[in-house]
Amino acid sequence: MTRNAPDPAADNDPRPHPGLPRWAKLLVAGAAIAVVVLVVVMLLVGGEHGPGMHG
Score class of each variant (00 low, 15 high):
His17Glu: 08
Trp23His: 13
Val41Arg: 08
Gly50Glu: 00
Trp23Gly: 04
Met1Leu: 15
Asn4Arg: 14
Met53Pro: 01
Met1Arg: 15
Glu48Lys: 13
Gly55Lys: 10
Gly52His: 03
Asn4Gly: 07
His54Gly: 01
Gly55Asp: 14
Val45Ser: 06
Thr2Lys: 12
Leu44Arg: 13
Val41Asp: 04
Gly50Pro: 00
Pro18Asp: 06
Gly47Gln: 00
His17Leu: 03
Pro6Gln: 07
His17Phe: 14
Met1Gln: 14
Gly55His: 14
Gly47Asn: 01
Arg15Gln: 09
Asn12Thr: 04
His17Asp: 10
Ala24Arg: 13
Leu27Ala: 12
Leu38Met: 10
Leu43Arg: 12
Met1Thr: 15
Val40Thr: 14
Gly52Pro: 00
Met1Pro: 02
Pro16Asp: 03
Gly47Val: 00
Thr2Ser: 08
Pro6Val: 08
Arg15Lys: 09
Glu48Asn: 10
Leu43Cys: 05
His49Gly: 03
Ala29Arg: 03
Thr2Asn: 08
Pro51Arg: 14
Ala9Leu: 10
His54Lys: 04
Val36Phe: 14
Gly47Asp: 01
Gly55Met: 09
Pro6Glu: 11
Ile33Trp: 08
Ala31Lys: 05
Asn12Gln: 04
Leu20Trp: 08
Asp7Pro: 01
Pro18Glu: 09
Leu43His: 07
Leu27Asn: 03
Leu26Thr: 13
Ala34Pro: 00
Asp13Asn: 12
